[in-house]
Design a protein around this nucleic acid. Structure first.
Length: 224
DNA sequence: TCATTAAATTGTT
DNA sequence: AACAATTTAATGA
């Protein structure tokens, strides 16, 4: 299992931080464990912290009153999120749910704002992150309307391996086909077929509850 | 360590 | 949506 120190080492914004500043960051961050299926935060909660995934997998998800649900994004280990709500001082606009046992870092709003005021590297990181995420959402709208299901699944899977947002070194992710379906906007059955297609194309390897990416570029450009 | 069982996930219709 | 098959995790001998 990964620990906070690994995550800080992987996050680009820590690299140019003076040692004493990094010490404060380390001291301020709270680490919590969540079981699979547990809520990390609920829609409507005041965003009092910037959230990082040290280990595991969480999803940003919204459930309407009538029972319809949408999954906006999956965040694997290495990802930080929630800066939008913290910056605006607004309640969260989505539920945050652990898809499997996860270790979460919570950086208090005061620390977050202090970094914003003192570190150029942190600002550059946030700019990059916001831009990458915008690109992902534009891609989602486009793929949703233009691509066939196999390609949608391929893109949704590739999005979990964005090296700017999630600087992880592993080529595999522990996710069920059902959850990947929520991310791709496809049924579990359709995801199952798509993964078989992608598997025989040599782009991924599918195991029980585990998907290994063999060719990330091929996945990203699949169907175009 | 092995066998049994329940739960989760997958493959198919 | 339903069903069967497979894999994993947990339990106790």
């Amino acid at each position: 299992m990964r620990v906070l120190e690994d995550m800080l080492a992987l996050s680009r914004w820590t690299h140019e931080l003076p040692p004493d500043h990094l010490d404060r960051v380390r001291a301020d961050i709270v680490v919590r464990e969540f079981a699979s299926g547990a809520y990390v935060c609920r829609k409507g909660d005041l965003a009092s912290a910037w959230i990082g995934v040290i280990d595991g997998l969480i999803k940003l998800h919204s459930l309407s009153r009538s029972g319809k649900s949408v999954t906006f994004a999956g965040i694997p280990a290495g990802g930080w999120f929630g800066e939008g709500s913290v910056l605006k001082g607004e309640p969260l606009k989505y539920d945050v749910i652990a898809l499997r046992a996860s270790r979460i870092a919570l950086m208090p709003e005061s620390t977050f704002r202090w970094l914003l005021d003192t570190s150029i590297a942190f600002n550059q990181f946030l700019l990059k992150q916001l831009n990458e995420r915008l690109g992902q959402f534009i891609g989602m709208v486009e793929h949703d309307r233009l691509l066939e299901p196999d390609a949608r699944v391929a893109r949704a899977l590739a999005a979990l391996f964005n090296r700017h947002l999630y600087p992880v070194t592993e080529a595999h992710i522990q996710i069920s086909q059902e959850e990947l379906g929520y991310l791709a906007g496809a049924s579990r059955q359709r995801v199952n077929r798509a993964l078989q297609v992608l598997g025989s194309a040599g782009l991924v390897k599918v195991d029980y509850g585990l998907i290994t990416v063999l060719d990330l570029n091929g996945l990203q450009s699949y169907g175009t």
